[in-house]
Amino acid sequence: MDSSLYPWFISQGVLAQLPKKQMQSTKFYKNLIAAFTSKGKLYGVPKDNSTLGLLINKDMFKKVGVDPKTIPTSYAGLIKWLPGFQAKLNKAYGKGKVTAMTYDQDMARNLAIMIAKGGKPVKNNGKANLASAQVVKNLGLYKKLVNTGAVATAKDLGSGDNGTAFGTGKVAMTEEGNWTYQVQKKQYKTNFEVLPMPTYQGKQRGMIFTVGWGENAESKNKKLDNAWIAYVTSKKEMSVWAKTVGVMPSRPDVAKAIKLTKDSNLDTWLKATNYSTVWQEGNTLTTINTSYQNFISDAMNVKMTIKQAMIKADKQANAAISNSK
């Protein structure tokens, strides 16, 4: 089950409690275990881990003569720095050929920023609260990025996703997850480096995506199920799995054992697990995100203010939610 669906499964009461000790819950990244824990009880075991990092195209930086070390580490710094960098890209590649950076219009990517400084996009009762003051203020970050003229979505550039835009040389920097690692290396042969996520309001913020094993509350053979989950998430089995499939493990000891930490790029992604937010927020998140995606582009394309767009998004999401009551 996906971390974002976990609260829904819990609300339906369909998950069985799992023995923490047998599952070696202390061996996992804390953030990940917390995502499958309710009221101190464990209901799921994370089987993998994906985080975001800032990918930069080293060849492009070389060509325009910018040292990657000079890239600001905060969004505030980036907003000042990006226009100059875009100008250099235009000079080297021609106007409109390479964009400096891409961003996303998806709550699954934006949530970490939205919740900064106590932002609360979802109320405790599950209702959407996207238009609340702090959330709107936080979303203003994206508008500032867009206004630099150096930031666009991958779709704006005619690509399906950030990884594609980055791999095909349409963008010099992008926030993307470790799943793009193999494809960038083998298919696109991009010469890239992964930097930690920029800081916003003094802190690094990113997202974590994970899938966990759960057990049906009505399972006839809980002992066997527990043994199975413990087995597939054990250090040995996860090492084999993570190595063959090429995903990041949910246990730091596995990451060490298969030497992921030795690769500086993968290590950056692994470290992001500690500062990032798990993609999870109550059991109405899918509905709210659908509504968010529906209206956010208008806010970014200067048709309306963020506040206006989010008021519309709230209204539509909450109407859908009350239909389920």
Partner: peptide
């Protein structure tokens, strides 16, 4: 086209898409 959202600004929202979202979304609808 819209990743299931019917956006931008409801411009591609069709009844069938809406039905799908209510039937197979995470709400009990």
């Amino acid at each position: 086209f819209s990743n299931g959202s019917g956006g931008p600004n409801n411009s591609t929202l069709t009844l069938a898409l809406m039905i799908y979202n209510y039937a197979f979304g995470s709400l009990n609808t």
